[in-house]
Amino acid sequence: MEKRVIFKGWLLPLLLLTPQVVVTAVFFFWPAGQAVWQSLFIPDPFGLKSQFVGLGNFEFLLRDPFYRASFVTTAVFSLLVTAVSMGVALYLAVLADRLIKGAGTYRTLLIWPYAVAPAVAGVLWLFMFNTRVGVVSWYLGLLGYDWNHVLNGGEAMGLVVVASAWGRISYNFLFFLAGLQAIPRSVIEAAAIDGAHFWTRFRTIVFPLLSPVTFFLLVVNIVYAFFETFGVIHTITSGGPQQSTTILVYKVYADGFVGQDLGSSAAQSVILLIVVGILTVIQFKFIERRVHY
């Protein structure tokens, strides 16, 4: 099934590849290389000269309890964001797939959150849950629940997870819906005739046939949770309280740009890069095997 295009000579292919290669080089290889280089030094407080420390930055980091805690925070956060955004999106997509009338409106409304930038989404949720003036926290107060994500680490985590997952649901929804609609109706009908009720059909036919989409979304969402949620966390909690929502990428920022510890920050970026690399490899190696294309 592989399609091959044959070019004569190598000039044209090279020319066609150049933009992609240049972009990748400028925005990925160069900064990544710099990060690796910087992670081997400790700059002096004024940034005038730096001292070579080898793997010192890494050694220090791996012994740092705050950094290790950040690993756990990241794992919990990404798992929750991925699970919530994919779970809700799948549920909505299944409902929308069964809908005949008004499906268009429903779909459009569900796509809107995707157009909201993460930082704006963060502010939005922050307003709603603001401990003093937030609508939701006020109603929670009426119900006798004292919402305070500024002090309560669990509540803070809950809020950033919901805010991050919210913007993601639209994206996942679109893919799930497209995936569902690609399943031939007659296959579902055959299963119905074979005696399978809705839930059995979903479990044995629909979900397995959806697995390529699910797998793709899993990879994309984990990467999203690792990196792109920065804006949400920055606006809502700034990593607090007591670093309970400081995920790895936020710590890179906090230590580097706020704490001015550039060496450690660079080392963290390198570790982050490696972690994501390993995660992706694991996903492709072990989960993809269960995917039916």
Partner: peptide, 18 residues
Amino acid sequence: PMDRNIAMVFQNYALYPH
């Protein structure tokens, strides 16, 4: 359909691909 004790063969066969 499941309660009618029938079986159906579809034009595109509708086999479970996985």
